[in-house]
Design a protein around this nucleic acid. Structure first.
Lengths: 220, 220
DNA sequence: TGATAATTTGACCGGTTGGTAAAACATTAC
DNA sequence: GTAATGTTTTACCAACCGGTCAAATTATCA
């Protein structure tokens, strides 16, 4: 039989699992650096070390590959936010959320860039996920943050924009890596910059959300 | 004569100026949403409302168009940072820098996405600018911030990461607009969100950089 | 007005792209 | 072993891509 993979529902061979894994790994490489339209099947096949028709035996279209990749990665990408605990200490929850996001930017930059490319280009393939599961999760956590502010545990602030700020500052180190390295120069572009970034961001967010009595801000 | 535009050095016709303007405008649209590799000359020609050969009469290659666009936009993109004044009041300088960057994200989202795409994909066309003029400017302003911290006018912090944080949080609203709108939902995705963002970010950075005596951070 | 230069167009080219067909080859089940 | 199934390859296609060319059209200016 020559039924292509997507048509089958069960009975996945050992070879199938291995090759699909191999392909998605290569696809992540390519899609993350060139975006969907900028990537070619030949390129992915090349990285995966197999012929194009062979690759198309496992995923029938470029679209199918991209979708499979997004599906696989999106879930784990949201894990750090899911761990955000309503019962925990607000400051340490926020602090460790920043840590986790920053670790993901360091350890999974390709995944970060995959989403960045997708969203930057209008999210044509994941619009539903954005307005569905992602929005629900953020809504839930925003409510937690709001309750903390209401209880006087952190400063009053818009919880959605707080989440956006944490996302953007941490993912920046994955998505704009070239720029960060360019600006910091050779000397400071090693692994140490992640420690520096963590220290800075924790200081910024923790003391930025601290409650202060006066509220008056002086400059000099 | 049929000398293509790039070969001439002087005597630019009225038509030339108009058409080049028209083309760059269309190119900005297309490059900003699809990245360099994902964009096609036909697409740009279509948006500009002219035929492909006609477009290529003004810019001989896709590369030339992209470069012209980058050159034109990069300079003004750095203006907000240039305005950053060493003699000013630190807090209000930082505050108004955030304002200006946020205004640019609101008023020139395509320009922001143009750079985001470029950097995300490894900055193959602007690496020199990153390590040259951009780095110099950031180095200069980082020194200003460092001196403010040393003089006790703001909290001690890594000036480079502070600048990265301001860049990422503000540009986020242009680059990840779809996501922001998806998460905030219909109700809150109007123009008001920029005011909310401005309020939040000013609070975050201003009180995040405030000097506090204790330094000990409590949670609950 | 007419000559000259500037602009626009349609037809085209070689290479690349996403994807197919069919046969060759490998693996597994019996 | 062999038959059935699963995998890989070779050859190929039509559409699209960046770019060229020469001819047609339009603007400029003496």
């Amino acid at each position: 039989m020559v039924l292509p993979r997507a048509a089958r529902t069960q009975r996945r061979t050992r070879i199938q699992e291995e090759k699909e894994e191999l392909i998605l790994e290569a696809a992540l490489d390519v899609f993350a650096t060139h975006g969907f339209r900028g990537s070619t099947i030949d390129q992915i096949a090349d990285v995966a070390g197999m012929s194009k028709p062979n690759l198309l035996y496992y995923f029938r279209t470029k679209d199918a590959m991209h979708r499979a990749l997004i599906d696989r990665v999106l879930d784990s990408w949201l894990d750090p936010l899911r761990e955000f605990d309503a019962e925990g200490n607000p400051v340490s929850e926020i602090r460790s959320y920043i840590r986790r996001k920053l670790e993901m930017a360091r350890d999974f930059p390709r995944e970060s860039r995959l989403f960045a490319n997708e969203i930057l280009q209008g999210a044509p393939h994941i619009e539903d996920e954005l307005k569905g599961p992602l929005k629900s999760l953020v809504d839930e956590k925003a409510e937690v943050i709001r309750s903390w502010a209401k209880a006087g545990k952190i400063a009053k602030c818009d919880p959605y924009h707080l989440i956006f700020a944490i996302w953007s500052t941490t993912q920046h180190y994955a998505d704009f890596d070239v720029q960060v390295r360019g600006v910091l120069g050779e000397e400071r572009s090693g692994d140490g910059r992640f420690e520096d970034a963590a220290r800075f961001l924790e200081q910024l967010f923790v003391s930025g959300l601290e409650i202060r009595e006066g509220g008056a801000l002086t400059g000099d």
